[in-house]
C-alpha cells in the first residue's frame, strides 16, 4: 500500500475503499488523498473504475467498505462527462450557470470570459460545440469557488489542439485559484505533462507518483505498453494481468 503523508490534512481522501456493483468488485482497497493545489490525474483502461472512483469521492456512490473523508464545508466544483440531454430540455448557457444555485449576471459573465467563451450567455446548450460545452461546464464549476475541481474525462471528444488548450486553461485556473484538481483522463501524453501526480488505476491503485516516475513504472507499462511514452496506449487490457502486486511506493 502506498503510504499517504499528511492524509489527515487533505481536503478530500479515501481510505481502503472498495465498491461492488452487483457481485463484481469494481474498486478494491483504494487509498487516495488529494492535497491542496495539486493536479492529480487518474488513468487506467476502460472499466478500471476511474469514473466510479470519482463518484465515490463525490459522494454519489457509497463504498462497500472503507471511508471517504472530506474537509468540513469543502466546496467542490464538478464537471460531468456529459449531460443527460439531447435537446429535450431547452436551456440557455445563462440559465445553466444558475443551476441549482442562482448566480449574478456579472459573475456569470466573468466566469464565461475567464474560460474563453465570453458573451455566449444567450446561446442554447444544445447548439454549443464540444469545446464550448466543456468550457461552459468548467465555468459553472468555477462559479462555486471550489477548493477542489473534479472532472470526469473533461476533454472527451475534443481534438488535440482543443485538448491541449483545455489543459492549459486548467493549469491557469489552478494557479489563480489554488484549487486542487482531480480528473480522469485518456489523453496520456497530455496528462504526463500537465499533472503533478498520476494515479494508475485498474480496480486497485497499480502505481502512483510524479508523471515521469509512473511512466517508467512496470505496472504502467504493463497497462499501457512501452514505446512512445504511452501515446499509443493499449486499452484492451485484460483483467488477468500478471504484474506483481507489490505496489510502487509513493514516488515523490
Amino acid at each position: 500500500m502506498p503510504r499517504l503523508r499528511g492524509a489527515h490534512m487533505t481536503p478530500l481522501s479515501a481510505e481502503d475503499v472498495s465498491v461492488r456493483f452487483g457481485g463484481a468488485e469494481v474498486l478494491r482497497n483504494v487509498d487516495i488523498a488529494i492535497h491542496p493545489g495539486e493536479i492529480v490525474t487518474v488513468i487506467g483502461p476502460n472499466g478500471s473504475g476511474k469514473s466510479t472512483l470519482l463518484r465515490v469521492l463525490l459522494g454519489a456512490i457509497r463504498p462497500a467498505t472503507g471511508k471517504v473523508t472530506r474537509k468540513q464545508g469543502l466546496a467542490i466544483g464538478y464537471m460531468p462527462q456529459r449531460l443527460a440531454m439531447d435537446g429535450r430540455m431547452p436551456l440557455t448557457v445563462r440559465r445553466f450557470l444558475s443551476l441549482p444555485v442562482r448566480r449574478r449576471a456579472d459573475a456569470a459573465r466573468a466566469a464565461l470570459a475567464r474560460v474563453g467563451v465570453p458573451g455566449i450567455e444567450g446561446q442554447s446548450l444544445a447548439t454549443l460545440s464540444g469545446g464550448q460545452l466543456q468550457r461552459v461546464l468548467l465555468a459553472r464549476a468555477l462559479l462555486a469557488v471550489p477548493q477542489i475541481l473534479i472532472m470526469d474525462e473533461p476533454t472527451q471528444g475534443l481534438d488535440q489542439p482543443g485538448t491541449a488548450a483545455f489543459y492549459k486553461l486548467v493549469e491557469d485556473v489552478r494557479a489563480e485559484t489554488g484549487a486542487a484538481i482531480l480528473m480522469v483522463s485518456h489523453d496520456l501524453h497530455v496528462v504526463m505533462s500537465a499533472s503533478d501526480r498520476v494515479i494508475c488505476l485498474n480496480g486497485h491503485v497499480c502505481c502512483q507518483g510524479a508523471p515521469k516516475v509512473v511512466a517508467n513504472a512496470p505496472e504502467y507499462r504493463a497497462l499501457f505498453g512501452l514505446g512512445t511514452g504511452g501515446a499509443f496506449a493499449l486499452y484492451q487490457h485484460a483483467h488477468d494481468h500478471d504484474h506483481d502486486h507489490a505496489e510502487q511506493d509513493d514516488a515523490r
Partner: peptide, 19 residues
Amino acid sequence: WSALLTTTLNEDLAVAADL
C-alpha cells in the same frame, strides 16, 4: 424546481451541489 432541473441534467452534478 432548481434541484429537480439539476438532477434531471446530471445526477452527479446534483450530488456535487449537495442535493
